[in-house]
């Protein structure tokens, strides 16, 4: 099939950027969306296009590293639910379709080039407290603390977050609540996570806010686009733990 890709081109962080239309021919339905971009890029290189090949982030191409991700026709990661951009396949498109491709847009995720953004803010949220402080070697025997299945499952469901940033990209407020809540839930429901539970919550929520993300007004758009289907309930948990933590932690530095 032949498609038209309307792609955001931006030479660098300070460039104003704009859309450019490209025709891509010979796309087959078993190709992935990123392979379609590859195909387009091959022709942009050989034809000597003024903008050159389109920069886009990707690595594993199997939906787990979280490095890929663009807005496709106004939806983060495109039209397939629970699917990363790299796992979107062209069998969902028809000959002649025009597809609009934009980078994530968020003040906390500045555009680096074309479709590539800087998601360093996510790492800094983890650095603020998204861990259990256990130095290597100091761990007790693993089966000493049983973790009931419901907690183990809840923790795992939340831990599946791949840090792609689609939640932020899709949120009308540009909020990073789902990402932060996923990490908090992962650790806060486990017995191992209890000692630092409330401090972690305060630290991560405040780090999140300091990064310039918006604030959540419960649009639930994040949950709908999340490729790992992180449940919205994690945000309720974040709020609950934050309220509790604030009530409990006295104002001290």
């Amino acid at each position: 099939m032949n498609l038209t890709l309307r792609v955001w081109r931006q030479a660098g962080p300070d460039d104003s950027g704009g859309f450019v239309d490209y025709r891509v021919e010979g796309v087959t339905e078993d190709m992935s969306f990123l392979e379609t971009l590859d195909l387009l890029n091959e022709s942009l290189i050989t034809s000597g296009d003024a903008h050159g090949p389109i920069a886009f982030d990707h690595d594993c191409r199997e939906g787990i590293c979280g490095q890929c991700g663009v807005m496709i026709d106004g939806v983060a990661h495109g039209p397939q639910p629970a699917t990363t951009t790299c796992q979107l396949h062209m069998r969902h498109y028809r000959d002649g379709d025009v597809i609009l491709v934009e980078p994530w847009r968020s003040a906390a995720f500045p555009v680096v080039r074309d479709l590539v953004v800087d998601r360093g803010a996510f790492d800094r949220i983890i650095a603020s407290g998204g861990y259990i402080s256990v130095a290597t070697g100091s761990a007790p025997e693993a089966n000493l603390t049983p973790v009931p299945r419901p907690q183990a499952d809840e923790s795992f469901t939340a831990a599946a977050c791949i840090g792609c940033g689609a939640c932020v990209a899709a949120c009308p407020n540009g909020a990073a609540q789902l990402y932060t809540a996923a990490k908090l839930t992962h650790l806060n429901v486990l017995p191992q996570g209890q000692p630092e539970r409330y401090e972690r919550t305060i630290a991560m929520v405040e780090a999140m806010e300091a990064e310039g993300f918006g604030n959540c007004t419960n649009h639930a758009e994040c949950e709908a686009v999340c490729p790992k289907e992180i449940p919205l309930g994690t945000i309720a948990k974040l709020n609950r733990d934050y309220i509790r933590a604030s009530l409990r932690a006295p104002a001290k530095t």
């Binding site: 609009l100 003040a107 540009g174 310039g212 604030n215 686009v225």
Partner: peptide, 23 residues
Amino acid sequence: ISKAARPSGYAKQDYVAANYASR
């Protein structure tokens, strides 16, 4: 805060879950 979090909007955004009331 939320306005500042998305200084430039999308050319197109198709809401999947956010409804008229929430927006």
